[in-house]
Simulated scan of single mutants.
Amino acid sequence: MMTTLSDPVVTPAVNDDKTLASPFLKCLVRLMRAQDSYGLWRGKCDAVLLANFTVTDEQRRAIPIIGDPDPYVMWKLDIFYAAVGLAIEERSDLLVSRTMEVSQEGFGRVLFTTKRLVLLSKTLRDVHRFGFNTLRDCAKTGTRLVNDAVAVINAYPDVARA
């Protein structure tokens, strides 16, 4: 089942301004709004846009264990990891390359590198079920990935900047 931004069921009950103000979620919203070429999301609040990244346990149980990711899920995955890469660049002042390979069965890998240093390598599983229980989980996961990559840059600054 594919939900879209116009579906009322995806509108979250988010009253946590601290979560919505996290640097990672702000970066994610900027990327989503940058892709809004027709202005369909212009009037939507950030919480409504970010609701696309939440998949409750009940929704996740309704999705078959084995399945092919649809284009909408692939878009969510792509925009999430693009936000991770952009946040790494903002924190490190380095150009970061992202490589993401996902098979049609929903398994793959995402890799973030500088010219000579692997910053982050993550295995992707069950991509067709991609999403987070809450926006807070989304923010925590994105922030953790960014922090891990920046820690590698700080550990090997000469290699990262070479």
Rank of each mutant, 00 (worst) to 15 (best):
T3Y: 13
S6N: 09
D7G: 09
T11E: 06
P12Y: 08
D16F: 02
L20Y: 06
A21T: 01
A21Q: 11
L25S: 03
L28S: 03
L28Y: 02
R30K: 13
L31Y: 01
Q35F: 05
G39H: 08
W41C: 13
G43I: 00
K44P: 01
C45K: 11
L50K: 02
N52L: 11
V55K: 07
D57L: 12
D57N: 14
R60V: 00
A62V: 01
A62C: 05
I65T: 01
I65G: 07
I66P: 00
D68Y: 07
P69V: 02
P71I: 05
V73P: 04
V73Y: 06
W75Q: 14
I79P: 02
F80E: 04
F80C: 07
Y81W: 10
A82S: 14
A83L: 03
A83E: 02
L86C: 13
A87V: 01
E89W: 03
S92W: 04
S92N: 10
L94H: 05
L94S: 09
L94C: 13
V96I: 11
V96F: 02
E101C: 12
Q104P: 01
E105H: 08
F107L: 12
L111T: 05
L117S: 08
V118R: 06
L124M: 14
R125F: 10
R125V: 05
R125D: 14
V127Q: 03
V127I: 00
H128Y: 05
R129V: 00
R129H: 06
F130Q: 07
G131I: 00
G131M: 06
N133M: 08
T134M: 10
A139R: 03
K140G: 07
T141K: 10
G142D: 09
T143P: 08
R144K: 14
L145M: 15
L145C: 11
V146T: 08
N147D: 15
D148M: 12
V150L: 15
V152N: 05
N154L: 11
Y156N: 14
Y156G: 09
Y156I: 02
P157Y: 05
D158W: 05
V159N: 06
R161N: 12
